[in-house]
Nucleic acid binder design. Sequence first.
DNA 1: CTGAAAGCGCTTACAG
DNA 2: CTGAAAGCGCTTACAG
Lengths: 336, 336
Amino acid sequence: MATIHDVARVAGVSISTVSYALSGKRTIGAATRDRIDAAVAELGYRPNAGARMLAGTRTNILALSAPLHADTYAPAHMTFVLAIAEAARDFDYDTVLLVQDEAVNGLRRMVSSKLVDGIVALDIDHDDARVPLLRELDIPATLVGIPGDTSGLTCVDLDFEAAARLSLERLVALGHRSVGLIGHPDELYERGSNFPIRFRDSFEAEATALGVDSLVVTPDQEPAAVRAAFERLRSELPGLSAIVLNCNEPVHTMLLELLREKGLGVPSDLSIVSACSSFPTDQLDPPLDVIPLPAQITGRRGVELTLSQLAGYTTPVVELVAPSYVGKGSTAPVTT
Amino acid sequence: MATIHDVARVAGVSISTVSYALSGKRTIGAATRDRIDAAVAELGYRPNAGARMLAGTRTNILALSAPLHADTYAPAHMTFVLAIAEAARDFDYDTVLLVQDEAVNGLRRMVSSKLVDGIVALDIDHDDARVPLLRELDIPATLVGIPGDTSGLTCVDLDFEAAARLSLERLVALGHRSVGLIGHPDELYERGSNFPIRFRDSFEAEATALGVDSLVVTPDQEPAAVRAAFERLRSELPGLSAIVLNCNEPVHTMLLELLREKGLGVPSDLSIVSACSSFPTDQLDPPLDVIPLPAQITGRRGVELTLSQLAGYTTPVVELVAPSYVGKGSTAPVTT
DNA sequence: CTGAAAGCGCTTACAG
DNA sequence: CTGAAAGCGCTTACAG
């Protein structure tokens, strides 16, 4: 394997000139640069990663802390991982994957061995073990997700409060005045889970502000519970003409099956919007309008925010990505 | 951050003694070792990764080449990735994740920059672009999956031919003498896809050997195609009492729905076995007996085989993991 | 059982 | 615009 000395010899320059030519950290004469480029190409030279890490100030490696919980939805998780690994490459970074307990315990090792320049963390719990750790570690890091206490940390995620408002605004624009929200299972709210609560609170506040009749139901992921929740919406919201879903995929399927069974058409009888969904709603029958959880975007921002800290920007920020609305034909003007 | 010099000073020894104590590459006096251990603990010392890579012969990093195809089933893929990252840690290795085009193009970079000691590659196509590359690269590597031409390469995967035999043997032991195989969509076989073909051929050969009436159908992933395939099995195998599935999850669901619609009980009217499935068959209704695609095991073996090459074992092997049969109550003795 | 020292292949002041 | 040289923090012969 060729070293920088080989390149220098072939190009007839010093190794420092080769180094500077490659890093672009000082101006190099055109002729010199050409000779270096030719030598690099001829030898197939690539800087030794270890030497670079040791001599330089950067390792060009990021740690991706990605624990996988029992209830993690694999396709969404995959999308985050891919987005982050690809975004990292766009900035000439490689990604070391830390899974399971290493997602927590491996972080200290990454930092003290100086293997990585920064960290991107996924699957953030409300009381995540990595939150105090990252505060202590003092290394560029971004949480993709919002923990309970964000002080001193940089985080990025979908703006789910705006998403709740957006879902309602779209329905109201179509004339709907009575809208139900099917949320996550009740335990999640009691446990103080972050998103679901913020989405729900924002939904309720916006409904009040817009003068819309609304009700939130929080069924477990079982057909019977979904059925009961739907019946409750119908009985307590007599004019029910639209439903917003902020829940997992199985509940979507169960609801749609229930509606089919009841002979209720979507959107002819009921408009439906899926909000903050990490799965494609195209596959559902019928496909649902959706405000996607933009894993591609937030994952990439996670990388960018970590690298911007590396570049010296050290003020912690909580960045909320604006929601977007994707129509799939599951909403229609209210007909009375 | 403490360096080896700090540890040596605090312990009152030379840095080479610290290095040897930590690597265990030569015997150290008990008292000396204790002082070094104490100094390491006191300082929270961890060897600098870059220095280690540069001075030593190992980087303690593995590359995981994991392209994601459009038809990749995310949960299975996730399982492979987790198994590999965890197995690597068990041998004190970290894992650099290479996705999409980097899964191919990044490999050469990994090798020439000496970032990794070896490679584990997932999602192996019949004519995988990484196959010639890995042959050329001359670095410890293992393919988790079997390409068309395995010459010179180390590979590991489920023994799907044995899996086909196993599925049939279990059914025959229950008295079944007429067994259908629902395989993958026809294109896959025409395209020369590896597993499906080997499974099918082995299934047919075993059926002949056991004197079992059999038929293979290869429907597309659509309810109508699955229905037609099932009808064909019924009409061409009059005594049909069992079906082996070697196909994707959607086809499983479609078939079970079809049977429900027809009022056919599983296993009362029909025994069913899911073979080489990368998804849990517990979730299906009813749960199906399964010969799992053991991602945990083959993923881990991928790491072990790469590290054994690093340790000097250089003879390429194609290692086939024996299939196992997991009963879930979807098979029963034939009743006539 | 332990130490002094060379060297791994870079980056980056320092110098001109 | 370019070069000579120190130094990053280890590992590992070489020596005793």
